[in-house]
Write a protein that binds this DNA or RNA. Sequence first.
DNA 1: AAAAAGCGGTGATTTTGATCACCGTTTTTC
DNA 2: GAAAAACGGTGATCAAAATCACCGCTTTTT
Lengths: 218, 218
Amino acid sequence: MTNENHAYIKDCFPVLEERLFEEIKSCCTYHEFASSTYVVKQGAYLNFLPVVLKGQIKMFAEEEDVQFLLYYINSGESCILSFNHLFDPKPIQFSAITEEDTLVMTLPVNKVKEWFIKYPTFARILINDYQRNFEDLLRTTKEIVCYGIEERLLNYLMAKGKRADSNMVHLSHSKIAMDLGTSREVISRTTKKLEKKGILSQHKRCIELLDTESITKI
Amino acid sequence: MTNENHAYIKDCFPVLEERLFEEIKSCCTYHEFASSTYVVKQGAYLNFLPVVLKGQIKMFAEEEDVQFLLYYINSGESCILSFNHLFDPKPIQFSAITEEDTLVMTLPVNKVKEWFIKYPTFARILINDYQRNFEDLLRTTKEIVCYGIEERLLNYLMAKGKRADSNMVHLSHSKIAMDLGTSREVISRTTKKLEKKGILSQHKRCIELLDTESITKI
DNA sequence: AAAAAGCGGTGATTTTGATCACCGTTTTTC
DNA sequence: GAAAAACGGTGATCAAAATCACCGCTTTTT
């Protein structure tokens, strides 16, 4: 089992030096999370760096009883949850929940610091992923500010579809509403509107995206 | 003049190794910007890292004829504009304008990469600043999503007052409107409302914050 | 099979903020 | 000092989205 997990590290960091790989293997811890469970909670202090090896995690803000999606962390893609807390013992400012069954590896902060200095490629990986987080957050912010729910919903659904590699999105209106920081009714009405436009069609507990080609993306 | 500029580097990066300091001095370029001028423009490709040595720069998004403030880069505080573009030749996704007369130093990308590996403390500085950018952006996003203009305006004004270390904020309603991504009329009405509440008072072309102590911050 | 919980639809109403239109004052510019 | 530009105030209207209220249909639980 552990050996199997080790393999995910290689998948996630293909360019890892052998020495670093050994070091990581020797001191990492694996955690399996079922879908829809908290990985980290806003306000917590972390003394480890979580790395997503398999699955997907949703980062979101919780503020004044409003909750909204910031961006996703995927395994193949970005692995770093955050290192806001690595060099500064500050509480993290967002929460993370698994979107599906997810395998997370945690690395102790002091080791990460050490490797960051010792292995430039490791530093490079961290930077790279952090950079993507920043860009994703910026894109989300722009979307929220500049586009109405109709466009945001469509974007959201298309991203979901793309990820699942399917036109069928299995999500309840209320879940979508949470992610977009709005209410169920609004989603319900908006999906209706999109349905009338022929952009999607709703089946029992599932939304089918039609004619995604013709839709101009943001 | 150049020597004077060099001194700002020390102010900005107090813990710089002497060797690195020499390297920076040997290949940096200084640029002075008057207030309200573009330092970088959204969509541009940069092949240098801009560092704010003196003054203040406003980072903002330009999207669909809406423009809004993301966060500020201050000299004493954060110096790194961005390194989104360092490792990946991507266009930057925001613009930067000086808020006051500002001295910027630019470092060639290849040198920055080199130093990033060679001088761990340098890497640490970059990370640290980038981290702040992320946190600032996140805070802005939360504010936009979770609070109405009244609160956002107040927050904005208080930040301005704090920075100027004064209760007097010299800004036109339309400038404020741009920063908050709204229109002049809205600001005009909102300031009036806040004035009636006794939170501020408006004089000729300038807003005075009253009783800032009693205001609960976000 | 009955009860409970979750899901989705929809009308009515309200709130917030955006937009339009217009006007008077102040400041700059030439 | 006159013209132009920038600034600020305010009424009227509009649109998007939030909120409330209610209802019927599924799915799950017991």
